[in-house]
Design a protein around this nucleic acid. Sequence first.
RNA 1: GGGAGAAUUCCCGAGCGGCCAAAGGGGGCAGACUGUAAAUCUGUUGCAUUAGCUUCGGUGGUCCGAAUCCACCUUCUCCCA
Length: 376
Amino acid sequence: MFKILNQEDRARRGVLSTVHGEIQTPVFMNVGTCAAIKGGISSNDLYDVNCQVELSNTYHLHLRPSDKVIYNMGGLHKFMNFNKPILTDSGGFQVFSLAAIRKIKEEGVYFASHIDGSRIFMGPEESMQIQSNLASTIAMAFDECIENPAEYEYTKMSSERTIRWLYRCKEEMDRLNNLPTTINKKQMLFGINQGSTYDDIRIYNMKQIAKLDLDGYAIGGLAVGDTVEQMYHTIDVVEPFMPINKPRYLMGVGTPVNIIEAVSRGVDFFDCVMPSRNGRHGTLFTSKGIISVLNEKYKEDKSPIDENCNCPACRFYSKGYIRHLFKAKEMLGMRLGVLHNLYFYNNLMKEIREAIETNTFNEYKKEKIEVLGKRI
RNA sequence: GGGAGAAUUCCCGAGCGGCCAAAGGGGGCAGACUGUAAAUCUGUUGCAUUAGCUUCGGUGGUCCGAAUCCACCUUCUCCCA
């Protein structure tokens, strides 16, 4: 299933085979929560920005249009007409992000819908059932993502509950994959490590979930209030306990620099709303650093966002024009911003892969870390 | 021709004697954004920035003190002819 092709120190170059095709890792998954990348990006555009994996959300799609509708439409791939791998997040992150409108119990989480306030319940079984209906390539375990900093005792209790939830997820996923009515009977399941910034909880948690023979393992609960140093430290602490022959996924991360740092620590999968959200807001990633095309200095700038970029925005349009689109609140501005950022992220991953293949990743890292995080 | 009302900082618009460099929008400028309740949020927006200086159509006046009161002028809107 997952094969490591090359390795340079802890950085891995691998390939994950799925029913929807191969995923070359390290990979960045492009976040389209509601079965669309925000900013007017179609699944067809995703091919143009070299997206390998699209990511959608269980909670959001359950509420609207409902997993039943998507099941009846033939699953997410047919629904959004995307034929590459799709990962669905479990709704666990919403336990964190919708904190004001939910209650957590052993059986699962009671939410008030952010759309109409109606009461909804989601536990491990419900999350698996919904994701099975969505028929994504990879389903994520239903977890509780805790905000940092967190109390030790609460973290311990919560992450142990998340382990129990994972066992229930695994059992339910096995059952669903054997149902004749299931669209994707080879749906993969990734488990999620939690434990906030407490090394002992993280390690205990990782050891427990590694016992299940899952298709991949994620590190969750990072970049949610912790410092960047704490995040790197936690990866360093947990990574040695992650199965080497399974993909590792750092959830919700991050900046280009975060990604390079995490790859060097043995992480294979990433996802983040940053390229799409920042793209919508005019903050764009370039090979020379980060820019805001909204800045006045680009008013009459005839050059593309990035001279070295071959994305649909950079091939045809100038910064001056794109700035105008943002200022005029023309939808095309956001669209071009997001296309550029996604292309940049997917290309960054390609460069990382090539660097590991040619055993030059350490140099690549050294060189890029200086530049990519800089605001210019 | 007669009558009524209005002119505020880039724009709209509040203020109607001191607590006003002047509310609130918009626009401008800058920043934030990490498993998306985010086409969102925050800061800033007269000049100098320490004191201070110059603003509320214009000119003059009342008052310790005026964007606010009075007189005239200018422009605009509405009503009656």
